[in-house]
Every structure is written in C-alpha cells, then in structure tokens.
C-alpha cells in the first residue's frame, strides 16, 4: 500500500509485530511503520469486529488503536517507534490487564 523513499537515510529501528521482527525507521510512528511493513495490520473493532486500518494519521479518528508494549488501545499514529518495541494487533475489545 505504501513504500519507502530510497532517499530516506534515517537509522533503522527494529520493532516486533505480533512477535515478528519488522524494520522501521527512527521518527516513524507505530502506525506508519505498520502500514509500510507489508504485514496485515488490520485491527478488529470493539463493536462489531469489523476490520480497520488507520484513517486520519493525526490523532483524531482512533482507528489506529493498537497494543504497544502490553498496553492496549494506544493511538499508534501518535507514538514514535523505539528499538525493541512490542506491537500487537488488537482483535476486538481491549483485554483485561492490557
């Protein structure tokens, strides 16, 4: 859906998406890293389970909700990636203790 620019010289950052290593760049938001990763990053809504991907990328639509380092329902478009970050794609309602 998206590709990176060849001129992007930012340092690589390794994150893990559902346990799988994914290469991101310093300064990427979690949502941008997911969208360019080529992986299926669709979450399932808490209401009907419908699949969604980020819509606005500016913090207003809440369709980028994702579990980051064990904390559910974070706005992935507002959080920058960090080395070793653990991302989980949410399926349905947020789980207790996450």
């Amino acid at each position: 859906m998206f590709k990176r620019s060849e001129h992007d010289k930012r340092p690589l950052v390794q994150i893990f998406v559902d346990g799988v290593a994914v290469a991101a760049r310093q300064g990427d938001t979690v949502s941008a890293a997911l969208l360019v990763s080529g992986r299926d990053a669709r979450r399932a809504t808490a209401v009907s389970g419908a699949p969604r991907l980020p819509y606005c990328m500016m913090g207003v639509c809440f369709d980028c909700l994702v579990t980051i380092d064990g904390v559910g329902n974070r706005q992935g478009c507002l959080v920058p990636v960090t080395e070793g970050m653990q991302i989980e794609i949410q399926k349905g309602k947020r789980e207790i203790g996450k």
Binding site: F2, S5, D8, D28, A32, V36
Partner: peptide, 8 residues
C-alpha cells in the same frame, strides 16, 4: 514525516 508514498 516518513517519506512514505503510495505504491499500490
């Protein structure tokens, strides 16, 4: 912010 462009 990330120099990403559509490719599909």
């Amino acid at each position: 912010s990330s120099a990403l462009v559509p490719d599909g």
